[in-house]
């Protein structure tokens, strides 16, 4: 394994990316390397400033050769000397489309997901829509913990009952109401642009709830216009 080999500073790892021999920094993930070489890889739970979490699985890539290949979450997988990597094989594309189909069925009102669907040429959703707001990518949780040092939100429950919340589902003193969680949320990216904004899909934003905003009447959001302005009590009714 490459990481056990001690390298000289600045020494690069060489591997095969879609058939081309490329070099990468040994500390990069496959996703970082692919992005460096200009490839579009869909992601929902990844952000450059946060620890990768590897849960949306949209960034999967096929690694290995011959009939011994497997899919890996590229945001978590290190670059390895000599590894053969395919970012857009049929297996990868099929998998990404299916995952996106599952996520859209959960949150059909998300513009980000709809845009991604058109990018991946996903045309049909075969599951009953759930009209949920959260795809459980966990960006907000990591944002809160790693960048805001607050640890004010986290996961509760498990399996299909998993959700993101505050301790004991109550307003907490850990939360400084900075709004960073809303800022980074991919599922409701355009929610706070207001119901008339041209960019929204269907005014679905009025029906959705931010993870923590719903819990705090005095939420301060630095997006313009602020979520709490858009979502006046009468709008929610």
């Amino acid at each position: 394994m490459s990481r056990n080999i001690t390298r000289q500073k600045g020494e690069m790892v060489t591997f095969m990316l879609n058939g081309a021999q490329v070099q990468a920094d040994p500390n990069w993930s496959l996703l970082e390397a692919a992005k460096f070489y200009g490839l579009y890889i869909p992601t929902l739970c990844y952000d450059e400033g946060l620890t990768p979490y590897g849960v949306c699985r949209l960034c999967v890539m096929e690694v290995g050769s011959g009939d011994r290949t497997k899919l890996v979450a590229s945001c978590m997988h290190p670059v390895i000397e000599g590894l053969e990597v395919r970012t857009h094989s049929n297996r990868v594309i099929k998998t990404r489309k299916m995952i996106l189909e599952l996520l859209i069925a959960r949150c059909p009102g998300s513009k980000k997901l709809q845009d991604m669907a058109s990018m991946l040429e996903l045309k049909e959703v075969r599951f009953k829509p759930l009209n949920d707001d959260c795809i459980l990518c966990g960006l907000c949780v990591r944002m809160c913990e790693e960048q805001m040092m607050a640890k004010a939100i986290g996961y509760a429950g498990r399996g299909t009952d998993r959700y993101i919340t505050t301790p004991f589902d109550m307003t907490s003193e850990e939360c400084r109401k900075c709004g960073a969680c809303m800022y980074i949320c991919p599922a409701c990216e355009l929610r706070c642009q207001g119901p008339e904004a041209k960019t929204t899909l269907c005014s679905g934003c009025l029906n959705t709830e931010a993870v923590c905003a719903a819990k705090y009447d005095d939420a301060m959001c630095f997006m313009v216009p602020c979520l709490s302005c858009v979502k006046r009590p009468e709008d929610v009714k």
Binding site: V55, L102, A105, K128, R158, G159, T160
Partner: peptide, 21 residues
Amino acid sequence: LQEESCGKCAPCREGLLRMGE
């Protein structure tokens, strides 16, 4: 498995939900 999945990754959480349906 749907009850016992941790719910962390999308394919398992959403996939088992739909498989169950």
